[in-house]
Simulated assay, not measured.
Amino acid sequence: MSVFLKFRLLILACLSFILSGCVTLPGHRQTIDEDNFFLHISAPNLAIKNEIRFNAEKTELLFLPENAQIELVVADTIGKHQLMMEKYQESVVYNYRLNGRKMTFGNKEKEWFASQIPIIIDKAGLKYGPG
């Protein structure tokens, strides 16, 4: 192999390596994927992720920082629950689907979510109670 060809391959490899670094999105991401439980948390950084807070009773989400979001997918005897939580202005928006069908996030769905919060806290290391 000629020196020129080796040099071109080296340059191509370096450019590929540099560009792969550019594709990585900034921010903090945590994904837990176990059996019938999937949790994905994204935030601008780890400190902001650590601001996510549930109430002391572990039944509801109290605070979700700006630009953070939580995706939860759980399969159980009822079906496949998909819940996306993100902040919009000063409130948290809950987009809930059951077996792929968009549903209102009502009392029954909130009870289901409350049953998942202790698992979320345990697996993701999130906090609960007063900040």
Results as ranks from 00 to 15, higher is better:
Leu83Glu: 03
Phe17Ser: 11
Ala47Trp: 11
Lys123Tyr: 00
Lys49Met: 10
Gly131Pro: 10
Ala47Leu: 13
Gln116Val: 06
Leu10Arg: 01
Ile121Thr: 04
Leu61Arg: 12
Met84Ala: 04
Ser20Tyr: 02
Asp122Ile: 02
Leu46Tyr: 02
Ser20Lys: 01
Val92Leu: 14
Pro44Gly: 00
Gly79Asn: 10
Lys102Val: 14
Lys127Cys: 12
Ile121His: 03
Glu90Lys: 14
Lys127Thr: 14
Met103Phe: 01
Leu9Pro: 02
Phe7Lys: 08
Asn95Pro: 09
Phe38Arg: 03
Ile41Glu: 08
Val93Tyr: 13
Leu12Gly: 03
Trp112Gly: 03
Leu98Trp: 11
Thr77Cys: 11
Ile11Thr: 01
Glu71Lys: 09
Ile41Met: 14
Leu15Cys: 15
Cys14Ile: 09
Asp76Asn: 13
Thr24Met: 03
Val92Gly: 11
Asp33His: 08
Gln116Tyr: 02
Asp35Cys: 03
Lys108Pro: 06
Arg97Gln: 12
Glu66Leu: 07
Glu60Pro: 10
Ile119Ser: 03
Ile52Tyr: 05
Gln69Ser: 15
Lys80Thr: 06
Gly27Asp: 14
Leu25Ser: 14
Phe54Tyr: 13
Leu9Asp: 04
Trp112Ile: 09
Gly131Phe: 08
Val93Phe: 12
Met1Cys: 10
Glu51Met: 15
Gly21Thr: 04
Lys108His: 08
Arg29Met: 08
Asn55Leu: 07
Arg53Trp: 11
Asn36Met: 06
Val73Asn: 01
Asn99Lys: 06
Asn99Cys: 03
Ala68Trp: 02
Asn99Ser: 03
Arg101Leu: 12
Asn67Ser: 03
Asn50Trp: 09
Lys110Thr: 03
Ile48Gln: 09
Arg97Tyr: 12
Glu51Arg: 15
Leu83Phe: 03
Glu90His: 12
Leu83Arg: 01
Phe4Gln: 08
Tyr94Leu: 01
Ala56Val: 07
Lys49Ser: 08
Tyr88Asp: 15
Phe113Asn: 00
Asn50Ala: 04
Glu90Cys: 07
Leu126Tyr: 06
Ala114Phe: 04
Phe17Thr: 12
Cys14Phe: 06
Met103Ala: 00
Ile70Gln: 07
Ile18Thr: 00
Arg101Gln: 08
Val74Trp: 02
Lys6Asn: 10
Trp112Ala: 05
Ile78Val: 15
Pro26Arg: 11
Ser42Pro: 04
Phe7Trp: 08
Ile78Gln: 14
Leu72Met: 12
Asp35Val: 07
Ala47Tyr: 12
Ala75Phe: 06
Asn67Glu: 11
Ser42Trp: 10
Asn36Ser: 09
His81Asn: 10
Gly125Tyr: 02
Pro26Ile: 09
Tyr88Trp: 15
Lys87Trp: 13
Gly100Phe: 05
Ala56Thr: 04
Ala75Met: 09
Gly27Tyr: 14
Asp33Trp: 06
Gly129Asp: 09
Leu62Glu: 13
Trp112Asp: 04
Glu109Tyr: 09
Thr77Arg: 14
Gly129Trp: 11
Asn107Ala: 15
Leu126Ile: 11
Leu83Met: 05
Asn55Glu: 06
Tyr94Trp: 01
Phe105Lys: 10
Ser91Gln: 15
Arg97Asp: 05
Leu62Asn: 10
Glu90Ala: 10
Glu71Ser: 10
Ala114Cys: 02
Lys102His: 13
Thr31Glu: 13
Lys102Gly: 09
Glu109Ala: 10
Glu57Arg: 13
